[in-house]
Simulated assay, not measured.
Amino acid sequence: MAELIQITRSIAIDPSEIEETFVRASGPGGQNVNKVASAVQLRFDLVNSPSLSEPVKRRVAALAGSRLTKDGVVVITSNSHRDQPLNRAEALARLVALIREGAYPPKPRIATRPTLASKKRRLEGKSRRSEVKQMRGRPGQD
């Protein structure tokens, strides 16, 4: 049995949940590029994954954006290397990073109020700017 892929201390996914397909890559490779399928397309069925809880699935789906299909499958394509094993490792690392980022809930923002001194500084700056602009007008008839 393959070893579990550790995401966080409490989350690990089974390698059988990940499906890899190899395609021909565009870009560098010379004559090799037309013969060898070195790019990897990694598919992870996010919706039906038993390894992830529902809140984590929702956060990962939001983070995945256009990499998420209508069926709830995350598709990650890697073709930056000429070597298939390097592309596999990069795609897996990107999937792990995506799930790791979605594993932790975002810290809630604590609303703060500006201090009285900062309000006064802001208003003084506005009045100074207003005076400068008023001095630019044509001189009066007095």
Rank of each mutant, 00 (worst) to 15 (best):
L52Y: 06
T77Y: 07
D71I: 05
Q41P: 02
R9L: 13
R136S: 14
M135S: 13
V73K: 00
V73F: 10
N79A: 12
S80K: 15
T69Q: 02
D71F: 03
P114S: 07
L4M: 12
K133H: 11
V73A: 09
N48I: 05
V47E: 07
I5N: 05
P50H: 07
N34A: 13
Q84E: 10
L116K: 14
T77F: 06
M1L: 15
K57F: 00
S118D: 14
P106F: 05
E131S: 05
Q6M: 09
T21I: 14
K120I: 14
S38Y: 01
A39E: 11
V47C: 01
S16D: 13
S78W: 02
R82L: 15
L68Y: 07
S49H: 01
E20M: 10
R129C: 08
L98N: 01
Q84W: 03
L123N: 08
R59D: 04
E54I: 11
A97V: 06
V73R: 01
I7S: 03
R138T: 11
L46W: 02
L92T: 06
Q6L: 09
G65Q: 01
E17A: 14
K57R: 12
T77D: 13
G72N: 13
R88F: 05
K120S: 15
R88N: 10
A2R: 03
Q6H: 07
E101T: 12
D14W: 09
R122E: 14
K35L: 06
Q31Y: 09
A117M: 10
L95R: 07
R43T: 08
R9C: 06
G137H: 08
H81Q: 12
A89R: 12
R109I: 13
P114Q: 05
R67D: 01
